[in-house]
Structure formats: structure tokens, C-alpha cells
Amino acid sequence: MALLEVNNIRKNFGKTKVLSDISFSLEEGEAISIIGSSGSGKTTLLRCLNFLEHPDGGMIRVRDEILFDGDDSRRLSDEEIRKRRLHFGLVFQNFNLFPQYTAIDNVMLAPRLAAKNSGQNRDGEIRKQAEELLVEMGLEDRMNNYPGQLSGGQQQRVAIARALALHPDILCFDEPTSALDPELTGEVLRVIRELAENHTTMIIVTHEMTFARDVADRVIFMDDGVIVEQGDAKQVIDHPREERTKQFLASYQTNG
């Protein structure tokens, strides 16, 4: 059984269809890349998985737990949504670090609150984990800096550590390098590549085609709210089958 199964997810904003019948699955330890032109619905899809948007229909299952079922009209409580979204982590395009906390405090905040809510004192353990994550991100000498004192690439790496600290089953990235200066994208992509090598289950929305081909196991190409083509990463990017995929990739070639 696949770790994640997404079935016929639909989403409209008013009258505009943003997602129609999105279906795909993801195995444990697999990294999948989502590519597609602007406005094709990539962000909306990630937001649906993370319960930041409510899909209009379809089904989302992680392991044997159905997280979302469009046929079930029962309204979920805030508490249920909160539990369910913890299966996913989300790294935003513009980081969204908390400016008033240092790098390490950004990483520790949510685990600390979770421990407090369950009446445990795991402060030492949480700090140790946060330090390890930041070291892994190459930020050992930046732990006590505030986000405003960090470069974009460093901020994004803190954001990745922050998401990892909650041990999500699936980590989602929404164009993690789009807001970065070109010379800073490398350090973030390197970190994600390492995560892939360690078999972190990931969904990565990206415009970096070379990266998608080399790092992802599979690639999904979206256009206009539908999945046009999905398959082995190298196959989709080097030898696309669909005409729309070819056109999209060709526009990348010409744009550099």
C-alpha cells in the first residue's frame, strides 16, 4: 500500500476550477516533483494536502487513515484538522519564519508546545534534536541568529529544519528556491538532495528542471488544474509523451 494516496481531488475558487480530478500516490521514501506553468494549481494542491484549503471533493489517505473524504459531509473540528495536518510538513516559498525568534527557537517552538499540551517535559530532547537538525542544515554557527540576520538561503534552511522537527510523514516544498537570489539556490537544493538521499518522503513543487530530474524519483506535470503526465522523473523530463509537457519543457529550454 502506498504511503499517500490522493484520489480525484477537486477545488474551485468561486467559479474558477483550480484543481480537477487530481490523483497520484507516493511510496514511503519516495520524492516526487510537481512541475507546471504559473497558475496551474501546484500551490493549491499542496495547500489542500496541508489543510490550508478545503478541497471540494476527492479523497486523501495516508497509510490506512483517510484524512479527507469529500463524500463525508461532516465538518471537521479545528482539533481534528490540526491532528491530520501533522502528517504533512510544508516549506513555503517565502520561508515564513517567525521574526521574533532565533533560528533554534523557530525550530523548537512547535515541538515544545506539543510537549506542553501533552503534559510532558521533553525540553532537553527537543533542544538536542533542533541542534542536530540545524547542524544537518549547515547552520551550526547561525543557531542564535534572528531571521532578519540571515540570508534567504539560510532562512529557508531554518524553515526546513523547523518542518522536520515535527517528523511529518510527507514533507512538501512549494518552490523553495523561487524567492532566493540565484547564488543562494544551490545551498537549499543541496539540503533537499541530501534529504532525498536519506529517503525522506517528499513532494517538491519546483521550477528547477534539472533538479527535479536528478533528485525526484517521479515527476508530475500539471497544467490548468489537471495532471497531464506523470512518471519516472528522467523519462518525463527527457522524453515527455504529451504535447503540452513538451511545450512546457521547451519554454524552459529557451528561457535558460
Binding site: 496541508n50 489543510f51 490550508l52 479545528d78 490540526r82 491532528k83 495536518r85 501533522l86 504533512f88 510538513g89 510544508l90 513555503f92 515564513n96 519564519l97 517567525f98 517552538l109 512547535a110 508546545l113 506539543a114 499540551n117 523547523r162 518542518a163 515535527l166
Partner: peptide, 8 residues
């Protein structure tokens, strides 16, 4: 960001 980190 707070929400996806499971905060209330």
C-alpha cells in the same frame, strides 16, 4: 506557518 506546525 503556525497552522502547518500543528499549533492551536
Amino acid at each position: 506557518a503556525g497552522k502547518v506546525l500543528g499549533m492551536k
